[in-house]
Amino acid sequence: MSMLSASVASAGLERVTVMQGEAHASADPKVELSTVLGSCVATCLYDPVARIGGMNHFLLAEPPSTRSRETFDEHYGLFLMELLVNKMLGLGAFKSRLKARIYGGANLNPAMSPIGTANGAFAHKFLQNEGIPVAFEDLGGRAARRIHFMPASGMVRCRTAPIESAPMDKPLVRPQSASGDVELF
C-alpha cells in the first residue's frame, strides 16, 4: 500500500477514480473523487447549499474524416457534461447554484492536434451557455495533473504530475455505446 492510499484508508475515505468518459456525483463526506489528466479536462461542479459535488473526465472525440483535424467532435463532451449535471440534480442539487472548477487540457505532444486547448475551450463554452460560473480554472500547459475532489465540501487539490503518469490521451473516435440507437414503442 502506498503512503497516499494508506492515509486515505486511515481517514476512512472512499476514493473513486473518475476515468475518461465517466461522470460521478456524491454528497457523501467520505467520498473523494480523483483522476489524472493529460490533455483531458475534468469539470468539478459543486452546489454549496446542498453540499453535492460531481466530476467528469472527458476528451473530445475526433471528428469524422471528412472534417478538418483542427476541429473536434463536441457531441460526446456535451453528453458527459449533461450526464454530470443530471447526476447532481438527481441527488438534489440545483443547476442555478452550481459553480465550476475546471482542470487539465494540457498539450502534451506538440506534434499532435491541440486537443487539450480544444477540450478547455469546450468546457468554457458549455459552462457559459448553461450559466454556470467558473470559480477557478487550471488549464493548459504541458504537464499532467492529479486531481482530488471532495464532493461534499467542494474542496479540490490539484498537483502537477509526471507526464508518464497521465493516461494515454489519444483522441478517440466516439465509443460504440454512444450509437444513439432509437427504440420505438
Partner: peptide, 28 residues
C-alpha cells in the same frame, strides 16, 4: 424507459444521439 412508455411516449433515444438516426426516427 418503462415509465416513459407507460406515460405514452412514442420512442426512446439515449444521448449522445446520432443525427442521421434521429432524423430517420422523426420521419418514421
Amino acid at each position: 424507459k418503462r415509465r416513459a412508455r407507460d406515460a405514452g411516449a412514442t420512442g426512446w433515444i439515449v444521448k449522445p444521439f446520432d443525427a442521421e438516426k434521429l432524423a430517420t426516427a422523426v420521419r418514421r
